[in-house]
Structures are given as C-alpha cells and as structure tokens.
Computed example of a mutant assay.
Amino acid sequence: MSDWYFEYEIQVNRPGLLGDIASLLGMLRVNIISINGVDEDRRGMLVHTDNDEAIERFRTIVSTMEHINVTKFRQPKLRDRLAIRHGRYIPRDADEKNTFHFVRDELGILVDFMAELFKKEGHKLIGIRGMPRVGKTESIVAASVCANKKWIFLSSTMIKQTVRNKLVGDEFSRNNIFILDGIVTRRSSDEKHLQLVREMMNMPCIKVVEHPDMFVQHSEYKIEDFDYIIELRHHTDEEITYEIMEKNHMSESDSFGGFNF
C-alpha cells in the first residue's frame, strides 16, 4: 500500500490523452488522489494503490505511449506533493540542494512548504534569510498554525525586541516550534538566553532561525548544521544584505527598549 508520483511531459496534446491515462489507471485499480499541470507542458499525478505490481504494469505501459514522455515516476517527495497542489516546483539552489527560493508573492506556497516540514517529528533546524518586512516571521507563525503547532519566540523583533532567558510549563514541549532571530541572539549579552538557546538546539524539536548567517557568526554552530535554508525576497533580483538589518535592529533596541524574560 503506497502513494506514487507520476509526471509526464506532453509531446502531442491531443484530445482524450488524459482520459486514456486515467482509464488505464482505473483498469489497474490504481486510485488517482490528485492531478494538476506542473510548470509548462507537464502534468503530474499523485496516485495510490494496494498493489505494487499494478504500478509496475502501469509504468511499463505508459513508457511506450507515443504522445507523452515520462519524466518522473517515484514515491512522492515533499516537493512533488507541493507541485501537485500549486502547479509548479519550488525553486531549489543548483549547488546547495537544501536551499529553497521564494518571493513575497509566493507566501502561500512558502507557508504550505514550512507547514509540511513542521509536521515531521524530531530535530530539524531551518534557517530563513530575507530583508526586513518581507514576511519571514509571519510565514513561520502561519505555518505553525497550519501544522497545528504552538510557536515560541526565543528572540524576536516582531513587536518589540524580545529575548527569552527561560521557558515555563508546556513551553518546553518538543511539539512546539521554536523561533529565534539570529541577529538579536548574536548581539545578546544575556548568558541565560544563550544557555537557553543551546538547550533548545540540543532538543529533538523544530527550530527556525531568522538570519542564520548572522546566528552562526562567533558561535559553535555552522551553516552546514541547517537541514533547510529558505530565502525569501521581495523580488527575484533582490540582494539579501545584513548591514541594513543590523542597523535596524540596533535602532529598534535603542528607541524602544526590549523585553528580557
């Protein structure tokens, strides 16, 4: 009993092509969970069967069909499931396979992506890069809600600059999403806060770090420790720089003070 992801490139978009493929799946008693166009001239299907032999027969038959070219046939990955939902693949860095790119207009896809990551159990360290007011924090919070998880800010500038130095009650739950601002934590001189961060980093739970490159500076952590890196931009050509962000963090701290608790 398993799900499979089947994707094909349309060579000749003749009437009845999709019907032929769907009929073949039906005859083999393979259920179609969802169908969608994926990027240009490709169609993806998420299918389910109790009989792996039926899948092999289907794979053999469709590979001989003249009007399509099978591009993917595998047990579905997270990117496959999201491609079916949203009609395109999430862009991934060519050199760093764990780095994914989004622009602000794609916040819905980003939230969906992070929510799927948040639903998984155990340790996961996620970094998110982006300039101010691009939607980093709101996306993390929205994804936590979608995943039905409680979120805990260890450090943040969402309302005021906040630095936590202890947790209480169910805040220690491994089911929570722990969020920290890498710039705020790096600049903190509160040893209790830094100790709390170290404890959370060692817990088998999900941690999300805004500005991961700043977080790893002058610390025992490396950027290679991150399981996923997300880059969020206002537009595709935007450069993510930290000089402006550090100035913003300093001015927020000086102008409004902050919370340490």
Rank of each mutant, 00 (worst) to 15 (best):
Q11M: 05
P15L: 04
L25S: 06
L25F: 14
L25G: 04
G26P: 07
G26R: 05
L28G: 01
N36H: 10
D39F: 05
D39I: 00
D41C: 07
R42M: 01
T49M: 08
E53I: 14
I55Q: 04
T60L: 01
M65K: 12
M65N: 06
I68E: 00
F73D: 10
F73H: 11
R74G: 03
Q75E: 11
Q75F: 06
P76L: 03
P76V: 01
R92D: 06
D93L: 05
D95Q: 06
E96C: 06
F102C: 11
I109G: 05
I109A: 10
L110T: 10
V111R: 02
A115Y: 09
E116Y: 06
F118W: 03
I126V: 15
I126K: 04
G127S: 06
G130I: 15
G130R: 11
G130L: 12
M131P: 06
K136C: 08
A142R: 07
A147W: 00
K149P: 05
K150A: 00
S155C: 13
T157M: 00
M158Y: 14
N165R: 10
N165P: 11
D170L: 05
E171S: 08
F172P: 03
R174V: 13
N176Y: 03
N176W: 00
N176I: 03
I177Y: 04
L180D: 00
G182Y: 02
T185G: 12
R186W: 15
S189C: 11
S189Q: 12
S189I: 07
D190L: 05
V197T: 01
R198S: 08
N202E: 08
M203G: 04
V209Y: 04
F226I: 07
E231W: 00
H235N: 10
H235R: 14
T236C: 00
D237M: 13
I244G: 06
M245R: 07
E246G: 07
N248A: 08
S251A: 06
S253K: 13
D254V: 13
F256K: 15
G257I: 03
